[in-house]
């Protein structure tokens, strides 16, 4: 049955990849990357069961963490053009108008 899961995850990831390439906006792409990451987590877990190597689940756990932080980092970078600490972020946004 894990063959079913891995196969459908693969199809899902290919479809999401199409959306990632097609865009058209930045936010479509970020959304696609995030969904792709969720699918990757599930894919690693399911293939761990398929190949009977339960250690894969640790990798899936780490990947889930990195995926979340990565999505937020991309969004933060594109909103503020910086990843560091910016105490006057709100002022920047108001002054930019």
């Amino acid at each position: 049955m894990f063959e079913v899961a891995v196969l459908s995850l693969f199809i899902t990831m290919v479809l999401v990849l199409f959306r990632l390439i097609a865009g058209p906006t930045l936010y479509d792409r970020v959304l696609a990357v995030n969904t792709f990451g969720t699918c990757t987590v599930l894919f690693i877990g399911a293939s761990g069961f398929l190949f009977e190597r339960p250690e894969f689940l640790d990798i899936a756990l780490i990947y889930a963490l990195i995926n979340f932080v990565g999505t937020l980092a991309i969004l933060k970078f594109f909103r503020y053009r910086a990843l560091g600490d910016q105490p006057n972020i709100k002022d920047n946004r108001e002054n930019a108008q």
Binding site: S8, L9, I11, T12, L15, V16, F18, R19, L31, A32, T35, C39
Partner: peptide
């Protein structure tokens, strides 16, 4: 459901 969701994304 995964494939339905991917269809929706497309």
């Amino acid at each position: 459901f995964l494939i339905i969701g991917a269809t929706g994304i497309i």
